[in-house]
Design a protein around this nucleic acid. Sequence first.
DNA 1: GTGATATTGATAATTATTATCAGTACTGGT
DNA 2: ACCAGTACTGATAATAATTATCAATATCAC
Lengths: 143, 143
Amino acid sequence: MESQERFAQFLNSRGLRSSAPRSQVARIFLRTERHVSTGELYDLVRKKHKEIGYATVSRTLKLLEEAGLCRQVDFGDGTLRYEHAYKHAHHDHLVCTKCGAFVEIYSGKLEKLQDKMVEKYGYMQETHKLNIFGVCPKCQKKK
Amino acid sequence: MESQERFAQFLNSRGLRSSAPRSQVARIFLRTERHVSTGELYDLVRKKHKEIGYATVSRTLKLLEEAGLCRQVDFGDGTLRYEHAYKHAHHDHLVCTKCGAFVEIYSGKLEKLQDKMVEKYGYMQETHKLNIFGVCPKCQKKK
DNA sequence: GTGATATTGATAATTATTATCAGTACTGGT
DNA sequence: ACCAGTACTGATAATAATTATCAATATCAC
């Protein structure tokens, strides 16, 4: 429930309103521990709130992102997904090219190495996105 | 000129034809040492060959990719770019979020670390895409 | 409450890519 | 050379996802 508060706080600090649709979309997203696309979240929202439109879902996701509560994930398949970011440490993804299954991966060494690379070129790092594509164990067996 | 031959060879091995439009698009792409989007390449092609359509450029890029001559690059800004892949070692990208400038980066250590991670989860690696986003030295000074 | 204004939802617009398809141009066999 | 079969092309339409528009509505400070 804490992240819900954080969202309200964020809206307030920006002079934005905690409207009913915004709160409802946010609640449903925050309750769903999955990587959802805008369309998927829209479907979830619709189960409870038939009156909420796609645009509002899309806009709310953008706000959640700015509030630091979610993060865009791009698996390169044409649709963007969003994952939780609040109290969820940074990580990268290992995606199966056959079935779409993925696991979240993290390595401190890998992060440090990246920092070094960035420094070398005089850049100031903001974020990074690493997606590794391959075939998952299940799909390897199927073949 | 060698990559041109390789393309012809690839087409032949697939039972495809080395048509004039295909060769022309390929030649212009291979001569341009830049990361181009389909639209940009289309414009370049149009300067020399007014009769070639967008679809052909798009299709030829796909073929070049299958031939191992180019590689898709997705900076997450909505348009896909293509870069040379033949005799161009694998590398990742460090992209400036202010001006779009980027540098190609590579680290053997980083690659090895990734291999370990993949192995750990039983996946069979195919490719990976690492984009680091930050602010380049020039844009840091401007500010 | 009330009024200024942020927000909403339906729809249209946008953007990039991909599919369709009739006409054209190659191909290999004769 | 000719011919039949088929791959290729380019214009256009279709697709897909996101974003902009805008009149109607809801919200919040006062």
